[in-house]
């Protein structure tokens, strides 16, 4: 067994353990779907680390043995799409935080704003009459 295999199995085990623990503790956002994805991804990594030749078997089954570059490109595309989706989600959350913060600031100063609005209204009336 090579060193990279040991490292990969160790990392995968930790990630699997954390995933199962979070799901078992019913932590926020931990769904069965999320757990399944985790088990598939990290379980798959463990299997590939222990049985490296399994990738050849998978490639043969999928029929991509001669198109390895295409597979790598697809992988890149998938990663790019994931990052894109993540950044979009972060952007949306940031906008929501700003909106909430703004609404809170305006609502906290509501009385003062209303008082000043009335003052300005009165002054405008006086100016028009003058």
């Amino acid at each position: 067994m090579h060193l990279y295999q040991v490292v990969m199995v160790a990392i995968s085990s930790v990630m699997l353990y954390l995933g199962i623990k979070e799901f078992a503790n019913r932590e926020t956002g931990q769904t069965l779907l999320k757990l399944s994805v985790r088990v598939t991804v990290w379980g798959g990594m463990t299997l590939i680390a222990i049985y490296p030749d399994s990738t050849l078997f998978i490639a043969r089954v999928l029929g991509v043995v001669d198109n390895f570059n295409a597979v790598v490109m697809m992988g890149f595309l998938l990663v790019f799409m994931l990052i894109f989706k993540l950044l979009s989600a972060i952007e949306k959350v940031e906008q929501n935080i700003s909106e909430l913060t703004r609404k809170e600031a305006l609502s906290e100063a509501h009385e003062r704003i209303e008082q000043l609005r009335q003052e300005i209204k009165e002054k405008k009336k006086q100016r028009e009459q003058a």
Binding site: I97, S98, T101, R102, E104, A105, L106, E108, A109, R112, I113, L116, R117, I120, K121, K124
Partner: peptide, 28 residues
């Protein structure tokens, strides 16, 4: 003055936008 407070630092744009909204409510 009319002092508004964003409890979290959201950036210059967010602060200016909040101020403009307040000015609009005041009827500027």
């Amino acid at each position: 003055v009319l002092a508004l407070r964003l409890k979290i630092n959201r950036g210059k744009g967010a602060a200016v936008k909040t101020g403009i909204m307040a000015a609009n409510i005041l009827g500027a």
